[in-house]
């Protein structure tokens, strides 16, 4: 995730202090990993240097957090371009799991046990996410769902591989 673009986007609704920016970010996107102050200030410094934000005012007092940042026209264009550009889909072509299955087949270990253990582990995590979802707010739900759909995709791959293990075994041992 691009923290720079995210912070820029948050500035669009109006100038903010660095502290405000961190709070707004954590509230919306930082469920798993809240931002460090240092991260905010280094990012803002970079954006300032690139002319995407400007310091609108410094409040009386001491410390860097007193700076109020505002987005520049260049910054606006930058956010717009970022949002318009689609994210590159992850290809997941080389997975550890595939490697493990092939190795198990090559060394004569039980590949189905491996797959079932993995599926149990996946399901355990899915249960946890499902529980979290049912007690969380909409944001929680959407984020958990994102993870759940990915895990489900993995699980389906596990199912499919399990169903084609015999075929894979002959292929591998050729």
């Amino acid at each position: 995730m691009s923290i720079g673009h995210t912070l820029l986007g948050l500035l669009e609704s109006g100038p903010r202090h660095g502290y405000d920016l961190k709070r707004a970010f954590d509230e919306r996107f930082g469920h798993d990993r809240p931002l460090h102050y240092g991260q905010v200030y280094s990012t803002m410094a970079r954006l300032l240097k690139n002319g995407l934000v400007e310091v609108e005012g410094i409040e009386p007092g001491s410390g860097p957090e007193r700076k109020r940042y505002a987005i520049t026209d260049a910054g606006l264009t930058d956010v717009e371009t970022w949002l318009a550009q689609p994210e590159k889909p992850e290809p997941y072509l080389q997975t550890t799991l595939y490697t493990k299955v092939v190795l198990a087949l090559l060394t004569g270990r039980s590949a189905i046990d491996l797959l079932d253990t993995q599926r149990a582990e996946h399901l355990r995590l899915m249960r946890e996410l499902t529980r979290r979802k049912s007690s969380g707010d909409l944001a929680d739900q959407l984020i958990c769902d994102h993870a759940l759909f990915h895990l489900e995709a993995d699980l389906r791959w596990l199912e499919l591989t399990a169903a084609r293990l015999d075929q894979l075994a002959t292929e591998v041992r050729k």
């Binding site: 149990a120 699980l155 399990a162």
Partner: peptide, 27 residues
């Protein structure tokens, strides 16, 4: 057959070719 539905359960039993596998015993 949907994992997301199964995620509402406490545990799962897998049926493959008419044979059941209690994942609690496996784990």
């Amino acid at each position: 057959h949907e994992a997301r539905v199964a995620a509402y359960s406490d545990r799962e039993i897998v049926v493959r070719d008419g044979k059941s596998r209690d994942m609690e015993r496996v784990a």
